[in-house]
Simulated assay, not measured.
Amino acid sequence: MYQFFVDKPFKEGTIINNHYEVVRVIGTGSYGIVYLCKDLRSQKNRVIKQLRPSKHRSKKEVELFEIETSFLRTLNHKKMPILYETFTNNEDFFYVMSYIEGDNLEDQIFYTKKTFNEKESLQILEQLLELVDYLHQKNIYHQDLRIPNILLKNNELFLIDFGLSKLGKAVESAHSLKMKQQDYYDLGEILLYLLYTTYTSKYKKALPWTEELSLENETVHLLKRLLQINEPYSTIKDISDDLHAALKANEKVD
């Protein structure tokens, strides 16, 4: 009840920090509210994330918000947000980042009914793998790779939302390997999700994906290792090698 009354988003037209005009709410998460705003100084669109006011009393939530901004500050990739500034206003915590135009995969799949065949799904994974590799080289583990956090525009993929990201150590530990493999597992879940966009059930009873989907052997092998059904991957290179083998198998079919 407290959260309901305290966490009301700013209305359209509200001015934040004297020069950011709220255009609309983009989304709400468990600890943040995200707005599309116009920077009245530059006349450019920006994205502002606000820590939910109900979370101010939690040191842990404030720390998570600050950790997210620290991760964004280290990023320098055209397919990821750029952090412009952080500020507090009447005890509220905010950060400002670049606006990446595009619809997330979840909306494209559910609202525009976009589908991906096997080759297209693998190509999406190829783009996403490059972004995950970039993060892992910085010892950053996303930990929330899901279709709502992936934007797609003109077949170009962008990765957003680093609210659950974790920092590993330069020397890989068992904990770092676990976080790395969680990102790999999430890649497998995304790939499987994309592959199911072209699936229409022929049976009343749901069957395992290995029986429902007609896939090249190389794609099955890739999925089973990503999803840790078979030996889990421990390096991006191994995933990349198997991914390219799956893409090659699909080119033969074409």
Rank of each mutant, 00 (worst) to 15 (best):
E172A: 07
K49L: 02
T69E: 07
N230L: 12
L192R: 00
T69C: 10
L159Y: 03
K202E: 15
E101W: 00
I82Y: 06
K202H: 12
T235A: 06
Y84V: 07
K44C: 13
T88L: 01
I15M: 11
L129C: 02
E61D: 15
L195P: 06
N154W: 03
T88I: 11
V62L: 08
L157Y: 06
Y233L: 06
V23S: 06
L135D: 03
A246Y: 04
Y20C: 08
N104L: 07
N250I: 06
T200M: 01
T200K: 03
H56K: 15
F116L: 03
L167Q: 11
N154A: 14
E68W: 02
N17P: 05
A245D: 10
L226E: 00
V47M: 09
E251N: 15
L191N: 02
L164A: 11
H77I: 08
G188D: 01
P9V: 08
L105N: 04
E63N: 12
T198E: 03
E211D: 13
E101L: 11
Q181F: 07
W209D: 00
H56S: 13
P148D: 10
E156H: 11
E120K: 09
Q127Y: 13
E211L: 12
T197G: 04
Y95D: 07
Y35M: 03
F71D: 04
N250F: 04
N89S: 14
E156K: 07
T198F: 00
E85A: 11
Y193M: 02
S58C: 03
E172M: 08
L226H: 00
L152M: 13
R52H: 05
M80H: 02
D242G: 04
P53K: 03
S42M: 08
S173W: 01
Y141G: 02
L151G: 05
L187N: 05
Y84W: 11
T69S: 15
T28G: 10
N104Y: 08
Y203W: 10
P148T: 15
L83K: 09
D92N: 15
